[in-house]
Structure formats: C-alpha cells, structure tokens
C-alpha cells in the first residue's frame, strides 16, 4: 500500500519557489540554501560506484579504483611520515 503525500494547497508560484529542482530565476539572496551536495548535476553515476572485491587487501572498491598492484610510499605533508599504500594500475600513463 502506498501512502499518498498530503495535498499541497500552496499557490503555484510559491510551490515553484519551494521546488528543489527548479532554480529560482532571480539572484535574490535566500535565507536558507540547501547544500549543493543534495543535488549533483555532474559526477559519477551510481553504477560506476558499485563495489567489487578489490584484491591486494583493498576490501571492496568501485571499478574505477580497481588496482593491479600496490606499493607503499611515505606521505608528503607533515613529518609524521605515514606510509601510504598506493593502488596502481597497469595502463598507458594518462593525464
């Protein structure tokens, strides 16, 4: 059984203003702005974030992060000198 949403009796222009998907036409500063992260217009699709066993002790990783091998290097910020395990993939050097 589905639960119907309560009827929205607000006038259309106010409904439009409150809409989460339509940006307001004017630049007027709103008192409250939703964080952008709720509505990403670009970025990875959910299917690309599916997790698969990562091997090399990496737990579950999405395909884009799948590694062929790992190697350890010292971190380059502070002098704690943490060891970071770098996940590397065989492929043409890009970027």
């Amino acid at each position: 059984m589905s639960i119907a949403p309560p009827p929205n009796n607000e006038p259309a222009e106010i409904q439009a203003k409150n809409s989460l998907t339509d940006a307001p036409a004017d630049d007027a500063r709103r008192g409250f702005e939703l964080p952008q992260v709720l509505q990403a217009r670009s970025g990875r699709m959910t299917r690309e974030l599916l997790l698969h066993p990562g091997q090399h002790g990496l737990g579950m990783t999405p395909d884009a992060m799948k590694a062929d091998s790992t190697t350890t290097a010292t971190c380059g910020y502070c002098a704690t000198g943490c060891g970071l395990r770098l996940h590397v993939r065989d492929g043409e050097a890009s970027d």
Partner: peptide, 28 residues
Amino acid sequence: SRWRSVGLTPETSYPVNLGMACPKGWEA
C-alpha cells in the same frame, strides 16, 4: 611509465601510522 596510481589507503604494516592517515594523506 605505464603504471598509474588510482587510489590510496593508509598502509597497515607501516610502523609509523599502523593503518591510519589524516585527511591530507587520504587526499594526497
């Protein structure tokens, strides 16, 4: 030259950080 890093995790066996890293390290 063909290898390329795709991600990183803190090294669990490294005697310094024992698998931990701060946000800067994670985003290195």
